[in-house]
Amino acid sequence: MVRLENVGKRYGTDAEILHDISLTLDPGGFYFLTGVSGAGKTTLLKIIYLAETPSRGLVSLFDTDVSAADRATHNALRRRIGIVFQDFRLVEHLTVRDNVALPLRIAGAAEREIRENVPELLGWMGLEDKLNYHPAQLSGGEQQRVAIARAIVRRPDLLIADEPTGNIDDEIAMLLVRIFERINRLGTTVLIATHDVAFASRFSHRHLHLDRGGLSAPKTAPGAPAAAALGGSSPSSGAANLDQDSAPRDRAEAEPEAPAGPADPPAPGDASAEAQ
């Protein structure tokens, strides 16, 4: 699904920010990418979601060698990825509804399909009464949910979330991870970057730890499986994923703000969204 080999990244003539990153993300996997601030998490994610090109090494997305692919192919690959940006990047002048519809429109989905699926998904995210609001009229948490809805509306094969648990309290962060887990159960590979190693350790998902630009086993992850997908050397590590419901439940189920709706998110726009 995602494979990096000896990837290095430097900006201009600066020192290398990432060096010799080799990793494999398996289809259907759920991964945390941890590391202190400035470790290079965002940079690594950018390389994966094709916002940056590596200075060296090989990147392969969905079995396509990225460096050999042309512009149109890059865009086609990007349409299979959902991204929750660290700063959300909602389009200010578009309503919540249009923000979430954006990936579908880009993929050429039918308007009728958009009219049906977008409100349904937003309802599932607890935003059914905010459809025609603009981002500036929403709370930070609501904006984040819109950003997540936009990232998953196309049923991406790969979901990348950069620091989604950054500035929110623990309970909401837990809730978010639950949402990502539900999406993961529908077949989407999930990669979440966070500087909070302790938080990530509360889940039994695989960890990738960035330390000064290099991948290593997490140092402070008591109780969490240290087996990461380092170097693609452990293809069987996907087993950890089957047991995700054994993750801490103490408060997750009692979320006051738990989104109403079906247990699984609707599956909007999957087929036509892949139109290229």
């Binding site: 865009n75 990007r78 349409r79 954006l102 990936p103 993929a107």
Partner: peptide, 16 residues
């Protein structure tokens, strides 16, 4: 530019 970059990251072709 920022919105255009976003559209690109969402997979928009140049023609879009």
């Amino acid at each position: 530019r920022t919105i255009i970059e976003l559209l690109h990251l969402l997979g928009a072709q140049d023609s879009y």
